[in-house]
Simulated scan of single mutants.
Amino acid sequence: MLFDTHLHIVDRQALDYPWLSSAGDLNRDSLYEDYARDAMRCGISNVLHMEVDVAPARIDDETSYVRDVSRRPDSLVRGVIAACRPEEDGFAAYLEQSLSDPFVKGFRRVLHVAPDDTAMRPLFRENVRRLSGTRMTFDLCVFPHQFETVLALVDCCPDVRFILDHCANPPIKEGMSKVWRKGVTDFSQRPNVTAKISGVIAYGDLKKWSVDSLRPYVEHTIGSFGWDRVVWGSDWPVCTLGGGLTPWVAATHALTAGCSPEERDKFYQANAKRIWSI
């Protein structure tokens, strides 16, 4: 069974998504019902919802919306990774509010859509450091040119548990990048970072990707971090750009076919259950 640590639900009738108007084929509703049908067929048993960069004023509304989804009969949703703005003064109060809500499992601030110096700002670092010793994780969604500043953030927050999204966004379409490869190795040397194997089918040739085209990136990430520090995610609906949930699950099984049952279990579900206490 798979634990999906990266589902996005998009409901334009319920919430506001300023970025969607320029998102091409993703500018549509992507509802839980559409995801769950295929997820159950693919053997996905637990899900965390990943924030979808809603309008800042709607961040709490997004958490409430997903909580309602989790209360539906047979829902797979077990919690949320909520949006946040550590660069703002209100983060400390928001953190205290979230710590009292067991449904919130962690936070994400998408850094590749923010100014490149965001992770260097003193207030941002101070606020992320507030997660030290808490149950909250912090997802990192960054591009290779931002690795140096984000690694510095990780180093100044050694007691915060970071999750590196999407194999650190490798530029698969351009071919293996020395910057990406070294960056993944550098992140893996920080023991407070876990890698998320997700999203990669949307970074190569959307129509012609194959298991072999993904293998160097997935294997380098897992090989760098080891089986105790990797988790799996669908990145639905972004994965639909590269064929959808079912092909990505099939590729995951093919990529791990030679691994031991214990290794697959850690990657597929056990690590996620441990990290987020589910």
Rank of each mutant, 00 (worst) to 15 (best):
L99N: 08
L99A: 12
L99I: 04
S100A: 15
D101A: 08
P102A: 14
V104S: 02
G106E: 01
R109V: 03
L111S: 00
L111N: 01
L111F: 04
V113E: 09
P115F: 03
P115K: 04
D116G: 15
D116R: 14
D116W: 03
D117T: 12
T118V: 13
M120V: 05
R121I: 05
R121E: 12
P122G: 00
R125S: 11
E126Y: 00
N127C: 05
V128W: 00
R129K: 10
L131Y: 00
S132R: 01
G133D: 09
R135K: 15
R135I: 05
R135W: 06
M136C: 07
T137V: 13
D139E: 15
C141Y: 05
C141E: 06
F143D: 13
Q146C: 12
F147M: 10
T149L: 08
L151G: 04
L151I: 14
L151S: 10
L153H: 05
V154T: 06
P158D: 07
P158G: 06
D159S: 13
D159I: 03
V160W: 02
R161Q: 15
F162Q: 01
F162D: 01
F162S: 03
L164V: 05
L164R: 03
L164T: 04
L164Y: 04
P171S: 12
P171T: 11
I172E: 04
E174G: 05
E174Q: 14
E174R: 13
E174D: 14
G175N: 09
G175M: 10
G175C: 09
G175V: 08
M176D: 09
M176E: 14
M176F: 14
M176A: 15
M176Y: 13
V179K: 12
V179S: 12
W180R: 07
R181Y: 10
K182F: 10
G183W: 01
G183T: 04
G183K: 03
G183N: 07
G183P: 03
V184F: 05
T185R: 11
D186H: 11
D186I: 07
F187S: 12
Q189C: 11
R190G: 10
P191V: 05
P191F: 01
N192G: 08
V193C: 12
V193W: 04
V193A: 07
T194C: 14
T194H: 11
K196T: 08
K196N: 07
K196F: 10
G199M: 07
I201S: 04
I201D: 01
A202F: 04
Y203P: 00
Y203R: 12
D205I: 05
D205F: 07
L206R: 10
L206C: 06
L206H: 09
K207S: 13
K208P: 00
K208V: 08
K208Y: 11
W209M: 03
S210Y: 11
V211C: 09
D212F: 01
R215F: 03
P216I: 07
P216M: 11
Y217P: 02
V218G: 02
V218E: 01
E219V: 09
E219Y: 06
H220E: 11
T221K: 06
I222Y: 02
G223K: 09
S224D: 08
S224Q: 08
D228R: 11
D228T: 13
R229N: 09
V230A: 14
V231P: 01
W232L: 03
W232A: 03
W236V: 13
P237D: 13
P237T: 12
V238Q: 05
V238H: 01
